[in-house]
Design a protein around this nucleic acid. Structure first.
Length: 259
DNA sequence: ATGACCACATCTTGTGGA
């Protein structure tokens, strides 16, 4: 089964390319971030027409995450546990009933955290700490699961066109990288790196300064696999070509194939 | 060439994104 993650940067502004992508790539599951839509304004009919069930955790103007699945969804959970005061829609989780082996999936929109001298950076690090705790909980169940999304973290110098250009940025701060490493060190697999060793493969190119044309990108969208899911991994790719489409998102989809 | 992005709100400018 094919599971894709994609920060679409507004599902309504992006509807034509989202529909084109779903038709062409035909993922069994699509994890969307930054839908920037309330649940009732989400273009559900158009997406259901392509054969998807939809689980939403929407929000007006900002954030918002979704899970699309050709198989039925169950046990839908909205919001990352650990802070009842957190009202930003950045996490949704569900179980995909696919064949004999159910798969738990999550769509994650991790906070950006800039500027670093503001509460936004504290919020990012606190959110990552909660994600770490939740990852630990999920792993205790010894299930196959996939945590896909926009993590807003550049892990290594190989994941950025020019490390110096991003020095000091919240995405590349040692604290952010250390937290991301802790998450991986729980025993999760960065699917893209499990399948590809070549450096400078990106998932985001800024709209500004001709970043796409110059391939000035960063890799910040990940699919993290539990051991039970990693055992079923047969492939992982970045659908870079969608960045060249008309009216593109600044992020491109990443997908995994699991047996 | 002295500017060079995009989306959203109830808007003709400010904010958030990365």
């Amino acid at each position: 089964m094919k599971i894709a993650t994609w920060n679409v940067n507004s599902v309504k502004a992006r509807l034509p390319v989202v529909l084109d992508y779903l038709r062409q790539a035909a993922p069994d599951v699509a994890l969307l971030q930054e839908i920037k839509s309330m649940d009732e304004k989400f273009p559900a009919l158009e997406i259901e027409e392509l054969g998807y069930n939809i689980a939403l955790h929407g929000q007006k103007t900002y954030n918002g995450v979704a899970i699309l699945s050709k198989s039925p969804l169950s046990d839908i959970r909205r919001g990352l546990p650990g802070d009842p005061e957190d009202d930003q829609a950045r996490y949704i989780e569900a179980v995909v009933e696919h064949g004999e082996q159910p798969l738990r999936v999550a769509s994650i929109y991790l906070p950006n955290g800039n500027p670093v001298d503001s509460p936004k950076f504290d919020y990012k690090l606190a959110w990552m700490k909660r994600l770490l705790a939740h990852g630990r909980e999920l792993l205790a169940n010894e299930e196959a699961f996939v945590l896909g999304g926009d993590y807003n973290v550049i892990l290594t110098d190989d994941d950025v066109h020019d490390p110096a250009a991003w020095e000091g940025d919240a995405l590349f701060r040692p604290e952010s990288i250390a937290q991301m490493r802790q998450l991986l060190n729980l025993g999760l697999t960065d699917a893209y790196r499990a399948c590809h060793t070549e450096p400078h493969r990106y998932t985001f190119w800024d709209y500004q300064g001709g970043a796409w044309q110059k391939d000035h990108g960063i890799r910040i969208d990940y699919l993290l696999l539990s051991p039970q899911a990693a055992d079923r991994l047969t492939g992982c790719e970045i659908d870079k070509h969608t960045r060249g489409w008309e009216k593109p998102s600044d992020h491109v989809p990443v997908w995994v194939e699991l047996d």
